[in-house]
């Protein structure tokens, strides 16, 4: 194809997206669109399966049978969401094994929030309330993104995630209505998860490299800062309802803006964790890599068995 023809195709392509048409895997697409989507969808998928680890950490220690069942179901949903997203990514011509390879070698990123430790039961509440709350704000607009398989996966994910945040908030509610000791657990969890949750929306708009292109392709509908503000505005009243204090002395309602003003985010910490030096980056990666490596013989066995069965069937049919 000549450069001019490609240019022409690109224009038609961008026009289709502008008209709210969906792009499907076999449609022509610019290489950059493919690569950006592989990066974003896989990063999203990786976040789901790495996200299973900090919460999975508390399945065996959940304080009641009801909480145990809810947590198990939630972590299982995350596995399911990872699976939907890997499948969506695979339609772009990359295999799940390649995607894992990128994760395991550190080439691909996942949400940094999962590099923080879950040290008390209240952390499970805080993750559901804050982390899933932030994730929902990020994810809901993706149900309308331009790439069909991603949009469809997100519709399913969002539908299933609706119970996750409620599950977390209910834990926080029970703790804050409980004994002073329980309330202290809840406050401590909020103290530790508040700032990392704000960082989940990514760098400030001034620093963000992908925003403009992502807007055009409907990978984003609002900027990082807008989403962060939305999260703060909706979460602060929920903290008030719990009787907990958001750990930000500069937080105050701004009548003119109709929003909360908030204090400075520690971006040094953000970049430290992104670069692989958070409290649990190594543990998380080790857990993923060893699950994959220790499972190799199981996956091989299943393939070998399937091959034998297929051959036996052939022989039976031939005779």
């Amino acid at each position: 194809m000549s450069e001019k023809e490609i240019k022409n195709l690109e224009e038609i392509f961008e026009q289709r997206i502008a008209n709210d048409e969906k792009i499907e895997p076999k449609d022509w697409m610019p290489e950059k669109y493919r690569k950006t989507h592989i990066r974003q969808i896989s990063q999203h998928a990786h976040s789901e399966i790495v996200g299973m680890l900090p919460e999975g950490n508390w399945i065996t220690r959940a304080p009641s049978l009801r909480r145990k069942a809810a947590l198990l179901a939630k972590v299982q949903d995350e596995a399911g969401h990872g699976l939907y997203l890997y499948s969506a990514c695979e339609t772009l011509g990359i295999s799940r094994e390649e995607l894992y390879e990128q994760l395991h070698t550190g080439k691909a990123k996942y949400s940094s929030i999962f590099n923080y430790p879950t040290v008390t039961w209240a952390d499970i509440g805080a993750i559901g309330w804050l982390v899933d709350g932030a994730a929902i704000i990020n994810q809901v607009p993706l149900c309308n993104t331009s790439f069909g398989p991603y949009a469809r996966a997100m519709v399913r994910v969002c539908k299933e995630e609706s119970f996750h945040q409620r599950q977390g908030y209910e834990i926080m509610l029970t703790l804050s209505k409980g004994t002073p000791e329980q309330k202290a657990l809840a406050q401590d969890a909020l103290n530790r998860w508040w700032w990392p949750s704000l960082m989940m929306f990514g760098p400030t708009d001034a620093e963000s490299v992908h925003t403009e292109q992502s807007m055009k392709w409907k990978l984003k509908r609002k900027t990082n800062d807008e989403l962060r503000q939305q999260f703060i505005d909706q979460t602060v009243p929920q903290a008030d309802l719990l009787g907990l204090t958001v750990p930000d002395p500069d937080l105050k309602w701004n009548e003119d803006r109709g929003s909360y003003d908030f204090g400075a985010i520690d971006w040094d910490e953000f970049w430290q964790v992104v670069k692989g030096h958070g409290p649990c980056n190594k543990e998380r990666m080790n857990a993923r890599v060893s699950a994959w490596e220790n499972g190799a013989w199981v996956r091989d066995a299943a393939v070998a068995y399937a091959d034998k069965q297929a051959k036996a069937k052939e022989v039976a049919q031939a005779s």
């Binding site: 399966i49 299973m52 680890l53 999975g56 399945i59 065996t60 145990k68 198990l72 179901a73 972590v75 299982q76 596995a79 399911g80 990872g82 699976l83 890997y86 857990a287 060893s290 699950a291 994959w292 220790n294 499972g295 190799a296 199981v298 996956r299």
Partner: peptide, 20 residues
């Protein structure tokens, strides 16, 4: 429940959690 997130594939993780 101990296995959740550590199984040989996502699909087997989901299956074992269902049983749990």
């Amino acid at each position: 429940g101990e296995l959740c997130g550590h199984g040989p594939s996502l699909e087997t993780d989901i299956a074992c959690t269902n049983i749990a």
